[in-house]
């Protein structure tokens, strides 16, 4: 068999049984020694932060050095001060954020009262979101409260999130929400 690294990984790793019962031939000696070879041996290592909760665990991403550079493995970073190599079930599954056939790669839209999702372009989706945010915000905007005090707020929109944002992104996000007049701003790590 003539395989590149990626296909080799797919053949050896993606068989339902994994390495333990996979084979590239019928002589068992190479299989036994192959079973001792690390699938990340020739991979490039990059560090990242888990995107889920606010703990911020560090992880190492192993990507293929050849060809498409797809992700081979993601596991906890033993040198990271927060988690020291550990990851919970959600963190341990983050490889599926990229390597997953069920993953959406285009924005999807379900129109009001429609029963099906349809693929739309990013431009269309962003435009639509901006349009609706503006309308909802304007419709529910209060310049003053019942006592006549200036409040300049909207209670028609609330924000929950996001644990995946870093400090600087949070600042931009907060500034955006405040400029719209939002007062219901919450972070899911607190809920």
């Amino acid at each position: 068999m003539n395989l590149n690294r990626r296909e080799f990984i797919q053949v050896s790793g993606a068989t339902a049984a994994g390495l333990a019962v996979s084979t590239l031939g019928f002589d068992l000696k190479p299989v036994k020694s192959h079973a001792q070879m690390l699938k990340t041996k020739y991979a490039k290592e990059t560090t990242t932060i888990c995107c889920y909760c606010a703990v911020g665990c560090g992880a190492i991403v192993h990507t293929s050095k050849r060809g498409d550079g797809r992700v081979i493995n993601i596991e906890g970073d033993p040198d990271h001060v927060i988690n020291r190599g550990a990851l919970c079930s959600k963190g341990a599954s983050i490889k599926q954020l990229t390597e997953n056939e069920n993953r959406l790669t285009r924005p999807m839209y379900r129109a009001p009262y429609s029963t099906k999702w349809e693929e739309v372009s990013w431009d269309w989706a962003l435009e639509k979101i901006a349009e609706r945010v503006k309308k909802t915000r304007d419709d529910g905007f209060e310049k003053t409260n019942s006592k006549g005090q200036v409040v300049n707020r909207t209670t028609s929109i609330a924000s929950v999130g996001s644990a995946a944002m870093d400090n600087e992104e949070c600042w931009i996000y907060q500034a955006l929400l405040r400029s719209l007049g939002l007062v219901y701003i919450e972070h899911q790590a607190r809920i």
Binding site: G18, E75, C88, S89, A92, S93
Partner: peptide
């Protein structure tokens, strides 16, 4: 029972 072990096992072995 966070099941990190269970998922990490699947992840490393590329199991469905």
């Amino acid at each position: 029972a966070c099941r990190g072990c269970q998922v990490a096992c699947k992840q490393w072995h590329d199991l469905p």
